[in-house]
Amino acid sequence: MIEAKEINFAYRRGIPVLFDINCKIEDGEFVALLGHNGSGKTTLSRLFMALDHPRSGQILVDGEDIINYEPADLADKVGYVFQNPDLQILADTVYEEVAYGPRVKKLPEENIKTNVKAALQAMGLKGLEAKYPRILSFGQKRRLGVAAALALNPRMLILDEITNGQDAAEQAAMMEYLKALNEEKGTTIILITHDMNVVRKYARRAIVLTDGRLVFSGTPEELFEGDQPVERWGLRRPVVSELASRLGVSAASCEEFCEEVRKGGAAL
């Protein structure tokens, strides 16, 4: 569980970024953290991982204030994947990059091999173990960052714009894997994204920030199919939500929408 209590934050130049943020993410949730560029969502996620610390208020992980924590103290609880994958690359091969965290945690070498193999397989990077990470494509680097987080088997994953740079098949494979991880292992997923179609299909709750303030917390259905001012918050309704709303059906994906239409749920 991660909880923000009355969080205020400003960077060194003194300009406030977050104002009185209160939210709680329970174990096993799949949450989308949304907002326009500069809304504060990445900053809030960095506080969750102790990459930064609030000016006032508390960040609690499993009920414990993490004000004196460093990211390494939380690595086996909270995995963090940066928006810029180059910021995470530390090793000279793909294998060593994914093995880095488990080695820091002094896991047995046999466990490390098992975890690395599984993480690379899950992210479609099998066969690239000996490659130099910095020559990978942008999309591969993103998946490498996810693999490195997965190798520590964290209970929570914070993923910042990980679908960028992926083609449709890669994006679908990654999101289906995360969905399975959430549903089968109970891993908490916090997804920062601008892709509202991904939010509508996979997230079970959406948290929206605008100009550093929390303005919405609820289901994607409530966000996209109600009267929320999503455009004013810098968001766009998913195409499927627009169509479903106009035709009087409820659907989280194109597949569900087509099925509802096929069954005669819409008056065409």
Rank of each mutant, 00 (worst) to 15 (best):
D65L: 08
I59S: 04
R103D: 11
S56E: 13
I67W: 10
I15K: 12
Q83R: 00
E70G: 12
F48N: 09
G38Q: 12
D92W: 06
I67A: 09
A75E: 11
V81D: 05
D27K: 15
S56Q: 14
P85A: 10
A75M: 14
L51Q: 10
L90I: 14
I66M: 07
L18K: 01
F30H: 07
N68S: 05
Q88L: 10
G57N: 15
R55V: 09
E64L: 09
A91M: 11
D92N: 14
D27Y: 11
D73H: 13
F82R: 07
L74Q: 08
I67E: 08
L90D: 05
E64Q: 12
D52G: 01
M49I: 12
Y100C: 09
A50I: 05
D20I: 01
S39T: 06
N22Y: 06
G101Y: 03
T93A: 07
Y95C: 04
D76Q: 12
A50H: 02
G28K: 01
L47F: 02
G63C: 03
A99E: 09
L18W: 01
V17D: 03
G35E: 09
V98A: 05
G57D: 15
G63W: 06
K24I: 06
D92F: 07
K105V: 04
R103F: 04
D73A: 14
C23W: 02
L44F: 14
D86P: 08
G40V: 04
G63V: 06
G28M: 06
Y80I: 09
T43S: 14
A32F: 05
M49L: 12
L74K: 11
Y100P: 10
K24G: 01
S45N: 02
L60P: 08
E96T: 09
L51S: 07
P16G: 03
F19I: 02
A91P: 00
Y95M: 03
A91Y: 00
E64F: 10
D52V: 11
E26G: 00
E64T: 08
V31L: 11
L74N: 14
Q88C: 08
S39N: 09
V98T: 02
L34S: 05
Q58G: 00
I66W: 07
I89Q: 03
R55I: 09
P54N: 11
K41A: 13
D20G: 10
L18N: 02
K105L: 15
K105P: 00
G57E: 15
Y100M: 14
A99R: 06
K77A: 12
G40A: 12
G101A: 09
T43R: 00
E26R: 01
L34I: 03
I59W: 05
I59D: 08
